[in-house]
Structures are given as structure tokens and as C-alpha cells.
Simulated scan of single mutants.
Amino acid sequence: MPIPEPIAAIHSSLLRQAAPIFAIFPHPSDPPPVSDALSAVLPLVRWEGDRGTYHLVIFTGSEAEALTMHARLQRLEFGKRRGFGSVKVRVRVGETEWKSSVFPQKQQCEWVLLISKKVMQQENLAEGNPVKLKLELL
């Protein structure tokens, strides 16, 4: 039996009003939202610590803001932050790809990603070289 015209119009109106709610609370069978991605070209920095020498890149500006926002959203979603406030990432430098974490610095105006010696050798990187990075925020 078809739905009477006035009821169909009300039903349609209610669905339009409920659309934003469905965006906030997706159906469990819906695929997860697409994760954020960042691209940057940053200089490779050498840092000497108590336990050795490390090579890293430092994210500042809009990239740092995006990482900070991602960390805040994860904290809201899961109710806690990850160790040291870090964010899991999938990194691509040239042809080399790996999973790692980026770490906030004291005021979270910058984030640090460590680059291993193995990656430096595979991509022929040295201190001071610009590093073209692609990050997928997980």
C-alpha cells in the first residue's frame, strides 16, 4: 500500500533533518573514514642525545596544526591519548615506506619524526638534505 502524500512529505522532511546525525553516527557496516594525509619537504636534522645521535625532521606551521588536531580528535574518540601524545603514521620517503609515530614537542607547536639509518641509506639521505615526505595519519 503506498504511503499517503502528506505522510510521505513529512517522512522526506524528517530524513533531510536527520542527515547530519547519520554523518556523526555512521552505520557499523560503513567503511571507516578516510585518514588524513600530509605532504612536506623538510630538512633532515641531526640531533645528539644522551643515548646517541638521531636524524629527524621537524613539522611546524600548518603541518603541525594538522597533527595536533588529529591527536585531539583521537583523544576525543578514544578517551585517552597515546604515549607521549604521539600520532601513528605511515611514512613514505621516495620508494621507502614504513609505519612510525610522530611526537609533539613541549608546546605542540612542532612535531618530530625520526628517520632511521636504514631509510637514510636506502634513499641516499644526509644531514641537511631536503626530505620529501608523505604521511598518512592512522
Rank of each mutant, 00 (worst) to 15 (best):
M1C: 08
E5N: 07
E5Q: 13
P6A: 12
H11A: 15
S13W: 14
L14E: 10
L14C: 11
R16E: 13
Q17G: 10
P20Q: 04
F22H: 14
I24L: 15
S29M: 08
D30Q: 09
P31L: 07
V34S: 10
S35G: 08
S35L: 03
A37F: 03
A37I: 04
A40V: 03
A40C: 06
L42P: 01
L44K: 00
W47I: 08
D50R: 12
R51A: 05
T53D: 05
H55A: 06
H55P: 01
L56R: 12
V57F: 05
T60H: 05
A66T: 13
A66M: 08
L73D: 03
R75P: 01
R75M: 11
F78A: 08
F78P: 03
G79W: 07
G85N: 11
G85Q: 06
S86C: 15
V87P: 06
K88R: 13
K88G: 05
R90Q: 13
R90L: 12
V91I: 12
V91H: 00
V91P: 01
R92L: 03
R92H: 06
V93A: 02
E95N: 11
V102C: 07
F103M: 07
P104L: 07
Q105D: 03
W111Q: 09
V112G: 06
L113I: 14
K117V: 06
K118I: 07
Q122W: 07
Q122K: 13
E123P: 00
E123W: 02
N124K: 10
L125N: 02
A126C: 06
A126D: 09
E127S: 10
G128F: 03
K132G: 01
L133R: 02
L135N: 02
